[in-house]
Design a binder for these strands. Structure first.
Lengths: 203, 203
DNA sequence: GTCTATAGCCAGATAGAC
DNA sequence: GTCTATCTGGCTATAGAC
């Protein structure tokens, strides 16, 4: 059985850094706060990760590596579009309840530095939409789906699933609900969103 | 004819501050950069706005005051849900093409400091969903719409319209398109999104 | 109102003892 | 590998001349 890395100093740092960076962003994060949370000395951060920038990049790549498989599930799976919408919606919302800061962290930091995505795009496992697009064309020809561009459908699926978590303070204020009610609304969306999409696209 | 305020120092500052804060966020923005962009001395910023925090709040309230009427259009208007979806989608996408950083700026800063929305909620003109909810219930009873909670429908409308702009670097990378293609896709969404929503909810 | 100069602070990074 | 102490630079904010 392999050693549990979470007990190592390096991983205590990474876990603390995740929390602080995902909550405060690169610019708002403080090395001191990461050190405190990791219960180690500030100079240890530099010993292991050399600089704030490199520590941040480790956290970011880590976060992205968690998100990518979620998307690949809907892009590369062999089931029908309808089945994929149902399983993705259900899985994604469960995923993000476990990692609430993750989507907004990734989006916020990519807005701050859009070039950063180029580094990720070259890597194996980066989500690719081509198979999904072909499948949409095929199911339209078969009379299963109404005409829609694969790109637009994919954007719609992402939007309906990701947006409420990214914009949660705004949503809570507009819909005029507290945290508990918001959580319930998000749980409801596991089936709500899938139905909405399927109603929109099925012939 | 009133004096155009943009020629005043105070408004040069506000315009420069808008650009810098909306691009870099509160934490990433530098007073020096705002001063340079406004072509004035750094100490003038403090003369007119006292502190970075107060200048930021002026910019933020300004941004929110631009966004709120867009939402009130769909919440308070007297036309049918279908008509409101069509006009909101068309108008909102035009609006955001003119103010590309605005939605992500508001969302990012509210995530950084969620308490800030409480200050806005008390103000007159803050979007209120109650009328919209009643209308959804009514149109379902009349057999116009399929059963759906007003909250969920409203979240879906926001998500489909706002998300692609907030997450544009991510969307461009996943859909594998350049800036020009992205813009075209967003223009297409003016009708695309309205059709999608109407297909999803109309009986 | 607008400038220059600088105070005062804080954060990231490093040196060096152990 | 881990600590304390400190350097260095950059940032907000202000003092004060004009």
């Amino acid at each position: 059985m392999p050693k549990i890395k979470d007990t190592d100093t390096e991983n205590q740092i990474l876990n603390a850094a995740k929390k602080v960076f995902q909550e405060k962003g690169m610019d708002g994060a403080r090395m001191q706060e990461i050190a405190d949370k990791a219960k180690i000395n500030k100079s240890m951060l530099h010993y292991y990760y050399r600089s704030k920038q490199l520590l941040f990049e480790a956290v970011f790549k880590n976060a992205f590596a968690l998100l990518a498989p979620q998307l690949n599930a809907i892009l590369n799976d062999d089931s029908s579009i309808e089945e994929k919408v149902i399983s993705f919606t259900n899985n994604y919302i469960s995923f993000v309840v476990k990692h609430p800061y993750l989507p907004s962290f990734i989006i916020q930091e990519l807005n701050r530095n859009p070039k950063f995505i180029l580094k990720l795009k070259d890597q194996k496992g980066f989500p690719n939409i081509e198979k999904f697009k072909k499948q949409v064309v095929l199911e339209i020809e078969q009379g299963i789906l109404k005409p829609i561009k694969g790109e637009q459908l994919f954007i719609n699926i992402l939007a309906l699933n990701i947006f409420p978590f990214v914009a949660s303070p705004l949503v809570k204020a507009f819909v005029n609900i507290n945290d508990t009610e918001f959580k319930q609304l998000m749980v409801d969306r596991k089936t709500e969103v899938a139905n909405f999409i399927i109603n929109a696209i099925k012939v």
